[in-house]
């Protein structure tokens, strides 16, 4: 009996550590508009999952619920073993340091230089770092995204693709365990978009992160995702690898691959 209990406990621990993100029966409405209705998702450690859906289907609402910018109506979101609805503001802020968020608009602080943008989270959360260590960390992530030379430039002096890379560098600076990407290639030309997709894949492997990628850009999804979840009518309509979904005969799924 005791052995069974231990096995059960072990399997529970295993489940918690394997799934870095578990969403169960998530509902979110804005007035009469039911954006998310019984949405479920699991993200395993080291996995890249793409959420594919049309514009306005609720993809951005989903990741804003995960990071706590929006409060879901009902349902549960478990991030790194913790239910976010049970967390205090302070605990949520602590958890957020383990979650990176790449905004569609990049959201770089435009009154700060690239260095200050990257140092901002370090100064606030890794307060014991010396100035030299902070500088080393900044240069390390900037070198990884190939933009070490922009360290003293202002965001306004950078191109769209460069700004996206800097935003990714800022996302990586606290060594997050999960990264949420909101339309990472939207607004970029196909070549730059391809470069960003490659970078997302490379950085995921280098920093050993799990990623949830919100997009409707099929080339980005194909290049970055291990698994795709289709968000249609507010719920997880279909799921699988890119190849599996491409073979799916359902018209609602098929339209994305035509």
């Amino acid at each position: 009996m005791e052995q069974v209990l231990t096995i059960k406990q072990e399997s529970k621990v295993l489940e918690v550590t394997e799934n870095v993100l578990v969403i169960k029966s998530l509902y979110k409405s804005f007035g009469e508009n039911h954006v998310l209705a019984d949405f479920n998702l699991e993200l395993r450690k080291g996995e890249n999952v793409a959420v594919l859906g049309k514009s306005g289907s609720g993809k951005s609402v989903l990741i804003k619920c995960i990071i706590g910018l929006l409060v879901p109506d009902t349902g549960s979101i478990n991030v790194l073993g913790r239910n976010i609805e049970e967390l205090s503001i302070h605990e949520m802020d602590e958890l957020r340091t383990k979650i990176g968020f790449l905004f569609q608009s990049n959201a770089l602080y435009d009154s700060m230089t690239v260095r200050e943008n990257l140092e901002f989270p370090l100064r606030r959360h890794w307060i014991k770092l010396s100035a030299g260590e902070r500088d080393k960390k900044v240069m390390e992530v900037l070198t990884n995204v190939g933009l070490a030379h922009t360290v003293d430039m202002m965001p306004v002096e950078l191109s769209g693709g460069m700004r996206k890379r800097i935003a990714l560098a800022r996302t990586l600076i606290l060594d997050p365990e999960i990264i949420l990407y909101d339309e990472p290639t939207t607004g970029l030309d196909p070549i730059t978009g391809k470069g960003i997709s490659t970078l997302i894949k490379e950085m995921g492997e280098k920093y050993n992160t799990s990623a949830l990628i919100i997009s409707h850009d099929m080339s980005c999804i194909r290049a970055t995702a291990d698994r795709i979840v289709m968000l249609i009518d507010g719920r997880c309509y279909a799921g699988g690898t890119y190849e599996e979904l491409r073979e799916n005969k359902d018209p609602k799924v098929k339209q994305f691959f035509e």
Binding site: I67, L69, E94, R96, T97, F101, L108, Y109, P121, R124
Partner: peptide, 11 residues
């Protein structure tokens, strides 16, 4: 979205 960016970075 810079205010949101600040919030999601735990500030």
């Amino acid at each position: 979205e810079q205010i949101d960016a600040m919030e999601v970075s735990g500030t």
